[in-house]
Design a protein around this nucleic acid. Structure first.
Length: 287
DNA sequence: CTTCTTGTTACTGA
DNA sequence: ATCAGTAACAAGAA
């Protein structure tokens, strides 16, 4: 489940690998995975890579048809991967990669973007919920406008959280994962942040005091920052662009730790469903 | 075989 | 209008 730290890890590594490389062609195996005319990519270059929330934006240089405002907007959803393979890797040299990267494309490869230097960027997505969209600058801006500031955006304050929490009665965890209050926090980091803040995932949002909101903001920033430092969490099938796993799953506070001891109080961690999502928490110290 | 899982959005009903 | 709850999406694991 790529959340902000996982997407940030991919973008940071990919930026240096694809910057200004000319695209030879794109290949699409699954039509749902690439929305737009993929032939437009031929001859263009990726001039800039950025992350917003859990989305990746690749700005394109002017295309053969004369468009100057095109971008690839990418959402990995739960099982999407972006894997970069170049000629040196294929020849058995180059930077280290996981073994399975050599067998791409696989049955889960939905799109491949081939560069003129012989490198290929594979978009693998087991469940086909993820997508790559060819969008204009205006369309990207529309997509961005639906998002609240990123959790790592310094402009985000406890007051800006309270604007949302004070008029909603839903469990706070649902709001934490709602990208219209704060962008980039998904299930893993929401569970962990609420444990660090010692707040119950079921606390009605409007019951949070200003102090609670500040505590929650600090906790979200802490766990997300730790996730970035450890280059993401590989819980299901998240992978770096070279096929390697992240490290956060080994330090998760509650996520995936049902029956193990809470780091705050030593009680055993529970798992229950909240709004249909698996939710890990400590019933003793999260109130 | 059925049920569950997952992030996000569309839809439904209050 | 606003809010809350649920279905839908796809494919694989249990």
């Amino acid at each position: 489940m790529p959340e902000l730290p996982e997407v940030e890890t991919i973008v940071a590594r990919l930026r240096g690998l694809v910057a200004d490389k000319q695209i030879l062609e794109a290949q699409v195996w699954h039509p749902k995975s690439f929305q737009g005319d993929f032939t437009e990519l031929t001859g263009a270059r990726i001039t800039e890579l950025q992350r917003r929330g859990k989305m990746i934006r690749a700005r394109l240089s002017p295309t053969a048809s004369g468009r100057t405002d095109l971008n690839l907007l990418i959402h990995l959803k739960m099982t999407g991967q972006l894997i970069y393979v170049d000629q040196e890797i294929r020849a058995g040299g180059g930077h280290p990669t996981a073994d399975w990267v050599h067998d791409l494309p696989s049955k889960h490869t939905r799109v491949a973007i081939k560069f003129a230097n012989g490198a290929t960027l594979f978009f693998n997505d087991q469940r086909v919920f993820g997508w790559i969209r060819l969008l204009s600058d205006a369309e990207v801006n529309q997509a961005y406008a639906k998002l609240a500031p990123d959790i790592i955006d310094p402009s985000l304050t406890a007051d800006s959280l309270l604007v949302h929490t004070q008029r909603r009665g839903i469990p706070i965890k649902q709001l934490v994962m709602d990208n219209s209050m704060v962008a980039g926090v998904g299930n893993i980091y929401a569970c962990d942040a609420l444990n660090l803040a010692q707040l119950s995932p079921w606390r009605p949002a409007r019951s949070l005091s200003p102090t609670d909101a500040q505590t929650l903001l600090n906790a979200m920033q802490t766990v997300i920052q730790r996730g970035i430092e450890l280059k993401g969490a590989t819980i299901d099938n998240f992978s770096h662009v070279d096929g390697f796993a992240g490290g956060y799953q080994q330090e998760a506070r509650v996520y995936g730790r049902e029956g193990q001891e809470c780091y705050n109080c030593g009680s055993l961690i529970s798992k229950q469903k909240l709004a249909g999502r698996g939710t890990y928490f400590c019933a003793t110290c999260q109130v």
